[in-house]
Amino acid sequence: MCTSASSVTARNVGKEPRVRLALPDTFDVVLLLGEAECFPDQEVTGDAADAFADKFGWDPREEEDAFLYIRVTPRTVRAWRGEPELLGRVIMRDGMWLE
């Protein structure tokens, strides 16, 4: 992920690296809990920054303002499709995939 270095997200992750991401919508839910690390746009490896730019069609390194890349290492993943699947939704715990 990438965000403006002055954004609320950047400030929050800088103070508290434990994050929760909800993907992609409210029916097919993937809830990821993890640890975030921030990297200034000019300190990201070329390969990683190029991959980001290729995927999103935008290169933060070319912007006038400073940006941060954020890498999240998942610790717990919950996934479900609608209310009938709420039981058993934890599929990763402590960074380990569950069977």
Rank of each mutant, 00 (worst) to 15 (best):
A79C: 12
V13P: 10
E35P: 08
E64Q: 05
Y69E: 02
R93H: 09
G34A: 01
E63V: 14
R81V: 10
P40K: 09
W80M: 11
D41G: 12
S6Q: 15
V19T: 05
D59C: 09
R75E: 06
E63L: 04
V44T: 01
R20K: 15
A10D: 03
E64H: 08
V13C: 08
V90E: 14
A79K: 06
R11N: 07
I70S: 02
F39I: 08
R18W: 04
F56M: 13
R18L: 02
D50C: 11
E62G: 09
A53P: 03
P24F: 06
E63K: 14
T76C: 05
G95H: 13
T9H: 03
L87F: 14
A66T: 05
A48N: 09
L21G: 05
L32C: 04
L98W: 14
V72N: 06
S7E: 09
R20N: 14
T3E: 05
F52K: 02
P17W: 12
E63R: 14
C2E: 01
D59L: 07
K55N: 11
M96T: 15
C2R: 06
R81P: 02
P84C: 07
L98I: 02
E62S: 10
E64R: 14
G46M: 11
A36R: 03
A66C: 04
T73S: 11
R75A: 05
E85R: 13
S7R: 02
T73R: 03
R89E: 06
N12T: 02
L68V: 14
D47P: 02
L33S: 05
F27Q: 03
L21Q: 07
R71S: 08
R71Y: 05
T9Q: 05
V77G: 06
E43D: 15
F52D: 02
S6V: 15
V77T: 07
D54E: 14
G14W: 08
L33I: 07
V44S: 08
C2N: 12
S4N: 14
F67Q: 10
D47T: 00
R61S: 00
E43G: 09
A22H: 09
D54A: 04
F67I: 10
E16D: 12
T3H: 07
C38A: 11
R75H: 00
L68Q: 14
S6A: 15
D41F: 13
A49P: 00
A49I: 00
